[in-house]
Every structure is written in C-alpha cells, then in structure tokens.
Amino acid sequence: MALDSHAKNAPEHVAIIMDGNGRWAQSRGKPRLFGHHAGARRVREVVEACPDLGVKYLTIFAFSTENWKRTQVEVAGLMSLFRRYITKEARALKDEGVRVRFIGDRVRLDHKLQTLMDELEQLTEHNDRVHLTIALNYGGRDEVARATKRLAQDVAAGKVDPETVDGETLARYLDTHVLPDPDLVIRTSGEARISNFLLWQSAYAEYEFIDTMWPDFSAEVFGNVIAGYCKRDRRYGGVRA
C-alpha cells in the first residue's frame, strides 16, 4: 500500500476526527460502546499503515471537552476503554517504534488514567518511527484559552515582553508546540464539521470529509485518502506563478 510515486507529496502530519462509532454500532443493533471498542481496534491498523504512506505524525481525536455531555454510562465506558487500550497496547507501541503523546486538559481525568498516560509517554519517548498524538479531553478553544493564560502569566512575571508577542509566541504555549501543523485533517462518518479540533493548527490544512464510519476506516481507505491528498495543489493563500 506504499505510495512510492507520491511519496514526496505525502502529508507529514495527518489528523483524524474518528467519528461514527456509536452510529455504526446502533446500525447493527448493538450498544454504542460496542462501536467504540471496534473503533479502538481500528487505531492500530491505521498507525501501522503510516510509514508506508509517508505519514510521520498522526493525531487522533479520542475524546473532546464536549463529550462529557454524553450519558454517564457512555462516558464511564469510554474512560474504561482508554485505560484498557493503554494497558494492552503499550508494549506493542514501544516495540513498533511509535512515540505516543497526549494533548488536552488532564485535570478532569481520573488519576489512574493520568498515570497510565504518563507511563506510556515515558515508555515511548525515544521512539521516532511514527509520532502518535492522542487528543483526550481536548478542545481547540480550551487549548487556546489555556495557552493564553500561561502566556499572560509569563508576561506578568516579566518572562515575556508583551511587545514581542505574535502568533509564533502563542504557538509555543499550545499543547502541540513540539509538533508540526497538520497537513491533512480527515473526518469520518459523513459529518462535515471540525468540532473544535486543532483550530489554531489547522489554519492551512487540507480537509477530507468521508462517509466511511470510523470502525470501517481500513488501511486501504486511509491509503486512498492519502493518494487523493497527493494530487492537491496547496498554495497557502498564494497563487502559482
């Protein structure tokens, strides 16, 4: 599934809004959590496909700051799934050269989950084959608000000259400050909205909204989306001479 002919045009960083788990399950007469478990299993296939597709960075939207509005049963089930996923996949991720990072506000997450997140980041910190970033209790507006607060604190403490503050300054305070901006954002399940995901970072990203539900998002589907991206002409606000 390698895209040798398009390798030079492949996106370095792909971000995915993994949507449709619940509807996928309900269409099969199953509870929504059945779909979330199926979606979690799909993550590994997509991560493993990245090197052949020329993708170095993959960011996935696992749980948003707005997802707390869901039923208590679904939220509790998702938190249990996250803990189980980290425990089960940690060694494989390390052995496969995947570096894992988490972005989002961890304060509201339970202590056990926070500990597992810290341990997985430490376990994989020297890996460099694929950089997997998991957005957990993440929201773009919340991220910018938290970054602005930290920047304001440094200005007040005299660590930053307010006259020098610009977009690059604020970007250094974002959760993603060590990552390149995404080249391509994919949303599955037929919905055509960005849902508060990587608002700052995606200013010039290409978007692809596809009908495939996340549990059906195979490596083959991923490869087809990447192949389509490679044919796009990115101008970043300019025009070709």
Rank of each mutant, 00 (worst) to 15 (best):
R234N: 03
A49E: 10
L116C: 00
G104R: 03
G39N: 08
P215N: 10
G237C: 01
V130I: 11
H126Q: 14
G104L: 06
R42N: 01
V98L: 05
E48Y: 04
E208R: 12
Q114I: 04
L113M: 05
V239H: 09
A241V: 13
A171C: 04
R187V: 04
E220W: 04
Q153V: 05
P180Q: 02
T164F: 05
R240G: 14
T71K: 12
V178I: 10
V75T: 04
D105Y: 09
E96T: 09
I186R: 08
Q114D: 03
T115D: 13
D183W: 03
P162C: 13
R42A: 14
H36Q: 13
N67R: 11
F217Q: 08
F61G: 04
V185Y: 03
Y204F: 14
H13L: 06
K30R: 14
H13Q: 08
D154W: 03
D175E: 13
F209A: 05
A241Q: 11
R28G: 04
D110E: 09
L81H: 11
D161W: 07
H6D: 08
V73I: 11
A62L: 12
G237P: 00
E143G: 05
G20Q: 07
R240D: 12
G238L: 13
L151I: 05
M117V: 09
T176G: 06
R99C: 13
G238D: 08
V185H: 05
H111I: 08
Q153E: 15
E45R: 12
L198G: 01
E12K: 15
H6K: 14
R91V: 08
T59D: 07
I134C: 13
D95E: 15
E143W: 07
A40W: 09
V155P: 02
N127T: 04
W200G: 03
A90M: 15
V178N: 11
V155I: 15
W214I: 00
A205I: 01
D105V: 07
S218P: 03
E125D: 15
Q153N: 13
I226K: 12
A25R: 02
G139F: 06
A157T: 05
L109S: 09
K94W: 12
A145T: 15
V73N: 01
V221I: 15
V185N: 06
A135G: 07
V225R: 02
S195E: 07
G35H: 09
S27T: 05
L199R: 10
V130R: 03
V185W: 02
A92I: 10
E143M: 11
L3C: 11
D166V: 00
V14F: 06
E143V: 06
I226N: 11
L113N: 02
A147I: 07
W214Y: 02
W24F: 13
A192N: 10
R141H: 13
R232N: 11
M1G: 12
N21Q: 06
S218Y: 03
V185M: 13
Q201D: 12
K112D: 14
P182E: 08
R234Q: 02
V55Q: 04
R129I: 09
I194T: 15
R91G: 00
Q72E: 14
F102D: 11
Y207P: 00
E121Q: 14
N9E: 00
Q26D: 00
